[in-house]
Nucleic acid binder design. Structure first.
Lengths: 124, 124
DNA sequence: ATAACAATTGAACAATTGTTCATATATGAT
DNA sequence: ATCATATATGAACAATTGTTCAATTGTTAT
């Protein structure tokens, strides 16, 4: 566990301490774009209003905008703006029936992701 | 601001408000604080630099600040600031040995959460 | 046609966030 | 003691975010 802290240079010229570890991770690194998209996915879940929306959609798998607003206690406009964020990030999908738009979670990964987040919070 | 939600569902099902669904979810609603903490957990993962840090710590389960900076290609200062965010949100823990601080993911839920995020991104 | 309704959108605003640079701790070596 | 290294922190700044209000779109009913 305790290693020599002597400074080394990796092939790419960055100064580091444990060269093998550094180059091992660098070799498996994903493209820049990948991390941006991943971060955006988490960002979509990083607002309390949006976590409430997702929670509601976990409980009832299809809800209209007005009902989500009623559950959470905010304006339709606020919910609609947040749903657009979730829609853009492919976290929710929708189904329009007449005047009413029903939203639901996009796929099972979203349920799992959210459930894992719940578990982390409930343990701390 | 809540008056519209008093609207009742008609027998013919014309109304958009589905009162049973709404009250069913409302009854299972968690406290405000819960959603704030949950959102903050996701927020901690919502920056590309931080997703890279977490990715690196998934590959090698213990890394020092300088090596993380070398892997990602940014300054030690930037990494240190981001590690503080992750530390505050209990996503990482650390172990100081002499001058060197080794960071690792705090618990298995973080690995699971991150892995589920990866899966979502890789499918889209 | 008009009215009522469900949802979306645009603009403006305050609040928050991430980065950079410089400086401050803290430990180990000389 | 001084120097070098490893990390942490503070302050300032631009960029982004979430909310609100007002207006708009699209649908259904009369």
């Amino acid at each position: 566990m305790i290693k020599k802290t002597e400074k080394k240079k990796s092939k790419s010229g960055f100064s580091c301490i444990e060269t093998e570890k550094v180059s091992s991770v660098r070799n498996r690194m994903k493209p820049e774009q990948f991390f941006h998209y991943l971060a955006e996915t988490f960002r979509a879940m990083s607002d309390p209003t949006r976590t409430k929306i997702i929670f509601a959609l976990c409980m009832e798998n299809e809800l209209c905008v007005r009902d989500i607003a009623a559950i959470i206690g905010t304006s339709n406009s606020a919910i609609s703006h947040q749903l657009r964020t979730l829609r853009n990030m492919k976290l929710v999908k929708y189904n329009k029936v007449g005047k009413v738009t029903y939203y639901s979670l996009d796929d099972i990964h979203i349920n799992n992701l959210f459930a894992e987040g719940l578990r982390h919070v409930e343990e701390k």
